[in-house]
């Protein structure tokens, strides 16, 4: 189809689809007047039952914890996919390495980052990691949890990259270790679920005493799951960033010679 023909097809089709969608939306309760049986029930029972103050987290990890296992696996699979799709093939690899050596010869990009930025960057790593760990571990109490904290942890690695250089980042986080950590996090979630089956007789059953409301360890196995997810997400995003960086690493080196 020519682009013009495509537009002729798309215009009425999209109009029709939009009309359908809007028509559907008019059947929804007025904004702010929702009364969902499921949500109302959870809002009532979740805190007494699970002691975790953040109901979104107890829903994510306990009541609907199985969804989150699936979501974990989607992330895990996507990273496997990145490893597959961005792998360097034989021959290509040598090419890239030659180019890389070239870049080393040009004194690399180490000198292109100003010292001030480097010091600032290294200074930022610590707080970023602490923030990430904090968000992961306080998931049951306040907004946040394994996902959000995990991504923050992964960006700490990027800070290393911004501040220093790629080689330093690789030294901090060798790829096989990251891969193993990511896979372990994903597996750990499934295994904790299995623990529910073995200890409490039901897959994904919360087999640890929920503790008292407001304490860091409330929510039973929710903090454990948060840590598993944090590990997985941190590993996954670090790997994703590195896979993309692997591809872009030469850019900075070239920049000088242009």
């Amino acid at each position: 189809m020519s682009r013009r023909a495509r537009l002729w097809l798309l215009a009425p089709a999209l109009a029709g689809t939009m009309a359908l969608v809007v028509w559907g939306f008019t059947g929804l309760a007025d904004f702010g007047h929702f009364q969902g049986a499921y949500g109302n029930l959870l809002a009532k029972v979740a805190v007494p039952e699970r002691k975790a103050t953040d109901i979104v987290v107890s829903t994510t990890f306990d009541y609907r914890g199985f969804d989150t296992l699936g979501e974990e696996m989607i992330l895990f699979t996507a990273v496997l996919g990145l490893v597959v799709l961005l792998r360097e093939l034989r021959g290509e690899q040598e090419e890239e390495e030659e180019a890389h050596d070239d870049q080393e010869g040009h004194a690399g990009r180490e000198h292109r980052t100003s010292d001030a930025l480097r010091i600032f960057g290294f200074g930022m790593v610590g707080p970023t990691v602490v923030l990430g760990v904090y968000i992961v571990t306080h998931g049951t109490l306040t907004p946040g949890g394994g996902f959000q904290g995990g991504v923050v942890l992964a960006t700490a690695l990027l800070v290393v990259y911004l501040a220093g250089r790629y080689a330093a980042m690789r030294k901090v986080s060798p790829l096989p270790l990251l891969e193993a950590g990511e896979a372990t996090g994903a597996m750990a979630y499934g295994l904790i679920g299995l623990g529910g089956l073995i200890i409490a007789g039901m897959y994904m059953k919360n087999f640890i005493d929920p503790g008292t409301k407001g304490s860091l360890l409330s929510g039973g196995f929710i903090p454990l799951l948060n840590i598993a997810v944090g590990l997985e997400v941190a590993g996954a995003f670090s790997l994703a960033f590195q896979e993309f960086l692997d591809q872009t690493i030469l850019l900075r080196g070239d920049g000088g010679s242009e």
Binding site: F31, A43, V47, D54, V56, R64, D67
Partner: peptide, 30 residues
Amino acid sequence: LAIGYVGAGKAPIFADIPLNSKVVDPVVQT
């Protein structure tokens, strides 16, 4: 999120609000 919003409702986090407060739907947020 718009579906699950409840007018004048709080976020479903009971860290510093009483247990019977009106909150928005937690499921849609999950």
